[in-house]
Protein backbone atom coordinates (compact mmCIF):
# COMPACT_ATOMS: atom_id res chain seq x y z
CA UNK A 1 0.00 0.00 0.00
CA UNK A 2 1.21 3.49 -0.75
CA UNK A 3 2.48 5.10 2.46
CA UNK A 4 0.22 8.14 1.95
CA UNK A 5 -2.85 5.93 1.83
CA UNK A 6 -1.65 4.04 4.89
CA UNK A 7 -1.02 7.23 6.84
CA UNK A 8 -4.34 8.77 5.79
CA UNK A 9 -6.21 5.63 6.80
CA UNK A 10 -4.39 5.61 10.10
CA UNK A 11 -5.42 9.23 10.73
CA UNK A 12 -9.02 8.47 9.75
CA UNK A 13 -9.00 5.60 12.20
CA UNK A 14 -7.60 7.84 14.89
CA UNK A 15 -10.24 10.46 14.12
CA UNK A 16 -13.00 7.88 14.42
CA UNK A 17 -11.56 6.65 17.70
CA UNK A 18 -11.47 10.21 19.03
CA UNK A 19 -15.05 10.75 17.93
CA UNK A 20 -16.05 7.52 19.68
CA UNK A 21 -14.36 8.56 22.93
CA UNK A 22 -15.85 12.04 22.70
CA UNK A 23 -19.32 10.55 22.21
CA UNK A 24 -18.81 8.50 25.36
CA UNK A 25 -17.87 11.63 27.30
CA UNK A 26 -20.90 13.49 25.99
CA UNK A 27 -23.16 10.53 26.64
CA UNK A 28 -21.99 10.19 30.21
CA UNK A 29 -23.15 13.76 30.87
CA UNK A 30 -26.52 12.37 31.84
CA UNK A 31 -24.89 10.01 34.34
CA UNK A 32 -23.69 12.94 36.40
CA UNK A 33 -27.09 14.58 36.69
CA UNK A 34 -28.16 14.98 40.27
CA UNK A 35 -30.88 12.52 41.31
CA UNK A 36 -33.62 15.11 41.57
CA UNK A 37 -33.36 16.33 38.00
CA UNK A 38 -36.66 14.63 37.08
CA UNK A 39 -38.38 17.06 39.39
CA UNK A 40 -36.70 19.96 37.70
CA UNK A 41 -37.86 18.70 34.32
CA UNK A 42 -41.36 17.53 35.18
CA UNK A 43 -42.19 20.01 37.93
CA UNK A 44 -42.56 19.37 41.66
CA UNK A 45 -46.06 18.06 41.43
CA UNK A 46 -45.12 15.17 39.15
CA UNK A 47 -46.73 11.91 40.19
CA UNK A 48 -44.64 8.88 40.89
CA UNK A 49 -45.95 7.15 37.77
CA UNK A 50 -44.96 10.07 35.57
CA UNK A 51 -41.50 10.07 37.08
CA UNK A 52 -41.17 6.34 36.66
CA UNK A 53 -42.36 6.54 33.07
CA UNK A 54 -39.89 9.31 32.37
CA UNK A 55 -37.03 7.35 33.89
CA UNK A 56 -38.03 4.35 31.82
CA UNK A 57 -38.04 6.46 28.69
CA UNK A 58 -34.49 7.56 29.50
CA UNK A 59 -33.63 3.96 30.16
CA UNK A 60 -32.27 4.70 33.61
CA UNK A 61 -33.34 1.23 34.68
CA UNK A 62 -30.82 -0.31 32.29
CA UNK A 63 -27.03 -0.56 32.56
CA UNK A 64 -25.06 2.37 31.08
CA UNK A 65 -23.43 0.49 28.21
CA UNK A 66 -26.79 -0.74 26.91
CA UNK A 67 -28.09 2.81 26.92
CA UNK A 68 -24.93 4.04 25.20
CA UNK A 69 -25.34 1.51 22.40
CA UNK A 70 -29.01 2.49 22.03
CA UNK A 71 -28.14 6.17 22.05
CA UNK A 72 -25.26 6.04 19.60
CA UNK A 73 -27.28 3.71 17.37
CA UNK A 74 -30.13 6.22 17.18
CA UNK A 75 -27.71 9.11 16.69
CA UNK A 76 -26.19 7.29 13.74
CA UNK A 77 -29.68 7.07 12.24
CA UNK A 78 -30.30 10.77 12.81
CA UNK A 79 -32.52 10.30 15.86
CA UNK A 80 -31.18 12.57 18.57
CA UNK A 81 -33.87 11.78 21.14
CA UNK A 82 -36.68 13.84 22.66
CA UNK A 83 -36.22 17.25 24.21
CA UNK A 84 -36.85 17.62 27.97
CA UNK A 85 -38.85 20.78 27.55
CA UNK A 86 -42.59 20.63 26.94
CA UNK A 87 -43.09 17.89 29.47
CA UNK A 88 -45.62 18.45 32.19
CA UNK A 89 -45.96 17.00 35.67
CA UNK A 90 -49.25 15.46 34.63
CA UNK A 91 -47.43 13.18 32.23
CA UNK A 92 -48.65 14.90 29.06
CA UNK A 93 -45.72 14.94 26.68
CA UNK A 94 -45.57 17.85 24.23
CA UNK A 95 -41.81 17.57 23.80
CA UNK A 96 -40.37 17.80 20.31
CA UNK A 97 -37.70 15.63 18.82
CA UNK A 98 -34.23 17.11 19.11
CA UNK A 99 -33.49 16.53 15.43
CA UNK A 100 -36.51 18.57 14.49
CA UNK A 101 -35.31 21.43 16.74
CA UNK A 102 -31.77 21.40 15.43
CA UNK A 103 -32.17 20.86 11.69
CA UNK A 104 -33.28 24.37 10.63
CA UNK A 105 -30.85 26.01 13.04
CA UNK A 106 -27.93 23.96 11.86
CA UNK A 107 -28.39 25.20 8.32
CA UNK A 108 -28.51 28.78 9.64
CA UNK A 109 -25.28 28.33 11.56
CA UNK A 110 -23.57 26.70 8.59
CA UNK A 111 -24.70 29.62 6.43
CA UNK A 112 -23.16 32.17 8.81
CA UNK A 113 -19.96 30.20 9.31
CA UNK A 114 -19.58 29.56 5.59
CA UNK A 115 -20.13 33.21 4.74
CA UNK A 116 -17.51 34.23 7.30
CA UNK A 117 -15.02 31.65 6.05
CA UNK A 118 -15.36 32.88 2.46
CA UNK A 119 -14.51 36.42 3.55
CA UNK A 120 -12.03 35.74 6.34
CA UNK A 121 -9.77 32.97 5.01
CA UNK A 122 -8.45 34.71 1.86
CA UNK A 123 -8.21 38.04 3.68
CA UNK A 124 -6.21 36.57 6.57
CA UNK A 125 -3.88 34.64 4.28
CA UNK A 126 -3.12 37.73 2.19
CA UNK A 127 -2.53 39.87 5.29
CA UNK A 128 -0.39 37.19 6.94
CA UNK A 129 1.81 36.53 3.90
CA UNK A 130 2.35 40.21 3.14
CA UNK A 131 3.15 40.99 6.78
CA UNK A 132 5.71 38.15 6.75
CA UNK A 133 7.31 39.37 3.51
CA UNK A 134 7.59 42.95 4.76
CA UNK A 135 8.33 42.03 8.33
CA UNK A 136 9.77 44.68 10.60
CA UNK A 137 8.29 47.46 8.47
CA UNK A 138 5.58 49.96 9.40
CA UNK A 139 2.87 47.88 7.72
CA UNK A 140 3.89 44.81 9.72
CA UNK A 141 3.95 46.68 13.00
CA UNK A 142 0.58 48.34 12.49
CA UNK A 143 -1.08 45.09 11.46
CA UNK A 144 0.55 43.41 14.44
CA UNK A 145 -0.65 45.94 17.00
CA UNK A 146 -4.18 46.06 15.56
CA UNK A 147 -4.56 42.29 15.51
CA UNK A 148 -3.11 41.91 19.01
CA UNK A 149 -5.74 44.37 20.26
CA UNK A 150 -8.53 42.60 18.38
CA UNK A 151 -7.55 39.25 19.84
CA UNK A 152 -7.75 40.76 23.31
CA UNK A 153 -11.34 41.92 22.90
CA UNK A 154 -14.26 39.75 23.88
CA UNK A 155 -16.39 38.90 20.82
CA UNK A 156 -19.40 40.67 22.30
CA UNK A 157 -17.51 43.96 22.55
CA UNK A 158 -16.60 43.78 18.86
CA UNK A 159 -20.22 42.92 18.11
CA UNK A 160 -21.69 45.79 20.13
CA UNK A 161 -19.18 48.29 18.75
CA UNK A 162 -20.24 47.31 15.26
CA UNK A 163 -23.91 47.59 16.25
CA UNK A 164 -23.26 51.00 17.77
CA UNK A 165 -21.50 52.40 14.72
CA UNK A 166 -23.07 50.53 11.83
CA UNK A 167 -26.61 49.97 13.07
CA UNK A 168 -27.64 52.49 15.72
CA UNK A 169 -25.67 55.65 14.96
CA UNK A 170 -25.45 55.06 11.21
CA UNK A 171 -28.25 52.68 10.29
CA UNK A 172 -26.47 50.84 7.46
CA UNK A 173 -27.08 47.25 8.53
CA UNK A 174 -29.84 45.74 10.69
CA UNK A 175 -28.76 45.02 14.27
CA UNK A 176 -30.99 41.97 14.51
CA UNK A 177 -30.28 38.90 12.40
CA UNK A 178 -33.74 37.42 12.81
CA UNK A 179 -33.85 35.26 9.71
CA UNK A 180 -36.46 32.59 9.08
CA UNK A 181 -36.61 29.81 6.56
CA UNK A 182 -38.68 32.14 4.35
CA UNK A 183 -36.08 34.95 4.24
CA UNK A 184 -34.85 35.49 0.67
CA UNK A 185 -31.15 34.97 0.00
CA UNK A 186 -29.99 38.59 -0.32
CA UNK A 187 -31.97 39.76 2.66
CA UNK A 188 -30.39 36.92 4.57
CA UNK A 189 -26.95 38.11 3.52
CA UNK A 190 -27.72 41.69 4.64
CA UNK A 191 -29.06 40.51 7.97
CA UNK A 192 -25.99 38.36 8.48
CA UNK A 193 -23.63 41.23 7.57
CA UNK A 194 -22.87 42.36 11.13
CA UNK A 195 -22.53 38.90 12.69
CA UNK A 196 -20.34 37.90 9.78
CA UNK A 197 -18.22 41.05 10.14
CA UNK A 198 -17.79 40.46 13.87
CA UNK A 199 -16.60 36.90 13.34
CA UNK A 200 -14.38 37.98 10.46
CA UNK A 201 -12.58 40.58 12.55
CA UNK A 202 -11.87 38.11 15.33
CA UNK A 203 -10.84 35.22 13.07
CA UNK A 204 -8.70 37.33 10.74
CA UNK A 205 -6.70 38.63 13.69
CA UNK A 206 -5.84 35.13 14.92
CA UNK A 207 -5.32 33.65 11.52
CA UNK A 208 -3.19 36.44 10.17
CA UNK A 209 -0.79 36.20 13.12
CA UNK A 210 -0.46 32.46 12.74
CA UNK A 211 0.04 32.69 8.96
CA UNK A 212 2.72 35.30 9.45
CA UNK A 213 4.58 33.14 11.95
CA UNK A 214 4.34 30.06 9.70
CA UNK A 215 5.66 31.92 6.64
CA UNK A 216 8.53 33.52 8.56
CA UNK A 217 9.48 30.11 9.87
CA UNK A 218 9.43 28.71 6.33
CA UNK A 219 11.50 31.55 4.83
CA UNK A 220 14.26 30.87 7.35
CA UNK A 221 14.92 27.40 5.85
CA UNK A 222 18.35 26.80 4.31
CA UNK A 223 16.79 25.78 1.00
CA UNK A 224 15.22 29.22 0.67
CA UNK A 225 18.65 30.78 1.20
CA UNK A 226 20.04 28.37 -1.39
CA UNK A 227 17.35 29.48 -3.86
CA UNK A 228 18.31 33.10 -3.28
CA UNK A 229 21.98 32.25 -3.75
CA UNK A 230 21.10 30.71 -7.11
CA UNK A 231 20.12 34.20 -8.18
CA UNK A 232 16.44 33.36 -8.63
CA UNK A 233 13.88 36.16 -8.74
CA UNK A 234 12.09 36.80 -5.42
CA UNK A 235 8.79 35.73 -6.99
CA UNK A 236 10.35 32.44 -8.14
CA UNK A 237 11.80 31.86 -4.68
CA UNK A 238 8.34 32.25 -3.15
CA UNK A 239 6.33 30.37 -5.77
CA UNK A 240 8.69 27.51 -6.58
CA UNK A 241 10.51 27.01 -3.31
CA UNK A 242 8.36 28.32 -0.46
CA UNK A 243 4.82 27.58 -1.62
CA UNK A 244 5.09 23.79 -2.19
CA UNK A 245 6.24 23.46 1.42
CA UNK A 246 3.69 25.91 2.80
CA UNK A 247 0.51 23.87 2.35
CA UNK A 248 0.86 21.91 5.55
CA UNK A 249 1.38 24.89 7.89
CA UNK A 250 -1.32 26.91 6.10
CA UNK A 251 -3.82 24.05 6.25
CA UNK A 252 -3.20 23.80 9.97
CA UNK A 253 -3.74 27.53 10.44
CA UNK A 254 -6.99 27.48 8.45
CA UNK A 255 -8.35 24.42 10.24
CA UNK A 256 -7.45 25.79 13.64
CA UNK A 257 -9.25 29.04 12.95
CA UNK A 258 -12.32 27.49 11.38
CA UNK A 259 -12.55 25.38 14.51
CA UNK A 260 -12.29 28.58 16.50
CA UNK A 261 -15.08 30.00 14.34
CA UNK A 262 -17.33 27.17 15.47
CA UNK A 263 -16.98 28.38 19.05
CA UNK A 264 -17.12 32.10 18.32
CA UNK A 265 -20.44 31.55 16.62
CA UNK A 266 -22.17 30.82 19.94
CA UNK A 267 -21.65 34.29 21.43
CA UNK A 268 -22.28 36.10 18.16
CA UNK A 269 -25.57 34.28 17.61
CA UNK A 270 -26.76 35.37 21.04
CA UNK A 271 -25.78 39.02 20.48
CA UNK A 272 -27.58 39.24 17.16
CA UNK A 273 -30.46 36.93 18.18
CA UNK A 274 -29.57 34.74 15.22
CA UNK A 275 -31.52 31.46 15.24
CA UNK A 276 -28.56 29.07 15.07
CA UNK A 277 -27.33 26.02 16.92
CA UNK A 278 -25.25 28.14 19.30
CA UNK A 279 -28.19 30.06 20.60
CA UNK A 280 -30.21 26.87 20.87
CA UNK A 281 -27.44 25.34 22.96
CA UNK A 282 -27.25 28.34 25.31
CA UNK A 283 -31.03 28.24 25.81
CA UNK A 284 -30.86 24.50 26.43
CA UNK A 285 -28.09 25.00 29.01
CA UNK A 286 -30.19 27.59 30.83
CA UNK A 287 -33.22 25.29 30.91
CA UNK A 288 -30.98 22.23 31.50
CA UNK A 289 -32.46 20.45 28.51
CA UNK A 290 -29.76 17.77 28.44
CA UNK A 291 -30.66 15.90 25.20
CA UNK A 292 -30.44 19.14 23.22
CA UNK A 293 -27.16 20.10 24.93
CA UNK A 294 -25.73 16.67 24.13
CA UNK A 295 -26.77 16.86 20.50
CA UNK A 296 -25.30 20.35 20.08
CA UNK A 297 -22.07 19.35 21.81
CA UNK A 298 -21.80 16.31 19.56
CA UNK A 299 -22.28 18.46 16.45
CA UNK A 300 -19.70 21.05 17.54
CA UNK A 301 -17.15 18.45 18.59
CA UNK A 302 -17.70 16.46 15.39
CA UNK A 303 -17.09 19.55 13.26
CA UNK A 304 -13.98 20.35 15.27
CA UNK A 305 -12.55 16.85 14.84
CA UNK A 306 -13.41 16.84 11.14
CA UNK A 307 -11.61 20.14 10.53
CA UNK A 308 -8.46 19.04 12.31
CA UNK A 309 -8.56 15.74 10.47
CA UNK A 310 -8.79 17.58 7.14
CA UNK A 311 -5.74 19.68 8.01
CA UNK A 312 -3.85 16.53 8.97
CA UNK A 313 -4.70 14.90 5.68
CA UNK A 314 -3.65 17.97 3.68
CA UNK A 315 -0.30 17.98 5.53
CA UNK A 316 0.19 14.30 4.78
CA UNK A 317 -0.83 14.58 1.14
CA UNK A 318 1.60 17.44 0.46
CA UNK A 319 4.57 15.94 2.33
CA UNK A 320 7.20 15.07 -0.27
CA UNK A 321 8.72 12.44 2.01
CA UNK A 322 5.45 10.54 1.96
CA UNK A 323 4.58 11.39 -1.65
CA UNK A 324 7.85 9.94 -2.90
CA UNK A 325 8.82 7.12 -0.56
CA UNK A 326 12.31 5.73 -0.69
Amino acid sequence: MHPILATVLQRLGLGLLTLFLVSIIIFSAIEFLPGDFTEAVLGQSATEETVAAFRRELGLDQPAYVRYIDWIGSVAQGDLGQSFSGRASSGIDRSRSVAELIAPRLSNTLFLAGMTAIVAVPLALILGVTAALWRGGIYDRVVNAVTLSTISMPEFLVAYLLILFLATLNPIFPSLADVTSATPFWERVTKCALPCLTLTLVIVAHMMRMTRAAIINLLASPYIEMARLKGLKPSTVILRHALPNAWAPIANVVAFNLAYLVVGVVVVEVVFVYPGVGQLMVDAVTSRDIPVVQACALIFAGTYILLNLTADIVSIATNPRLLHPR
Binding site: S221, P222, Y223, E225, M226, A227, R228, L229, K230, G231, L232, K233, R240, H241, P244, N245, P320, R321
Partner: peptide, 24 residues
Amino acid sequence: RQALRGSRIAYVAQSAAAAFNPAH
Protein backbone atom coordinates in the same frame (compact mmCIF):
# COMPACT_ATOMS: atom_id res chain seq x y z
CA ARG B 1 23.92 40.81 -8.15
CA GLN B 2 21.10 38.32 -8.75
CA ALA B 3 22.33 37.86 -12.30
CA LEU B 4 25.78 36.86 -10.99
CA ARG B 5 24.58 34.46 -8.30
CA GLY B 6 24.10 30.92 -9.50
CA SER B 7 25.59 31.76 -12.90
CA ARG B 8 29.08 33.09 -12.26
CA ILE B 9 29.34 32.59 -8.49
CA ALA B 10 27.87 29.45 -6.95
CA TYR B 11 27.47 28.25 -3.40
CA VAL B 12 27.81 24.84 -1.75
CA ALA B 13 26.18 24.76 1.68
CA GLN B 14 27.24 22.90 4.82
CA SER B 15 24.15 20.75 5.18
CA ALA B 16 23.03 19.48 1.80
CA ALA B 17 20.10 17.72 3.44
CA ALA B 18 18.68 21.09 4.53
CA ALA B 19 19.76 23.10 1.50
CA PHE B 20 17.95 20.93 -1.05
CA ASN B 21 14.26 21.75 -1.30
CA PRO B 22 12.40 18.60 -0.20
CA ALA B 23 9.63 19.24 -2.73
CA HIS B 24 11.65 19.01 -5.97
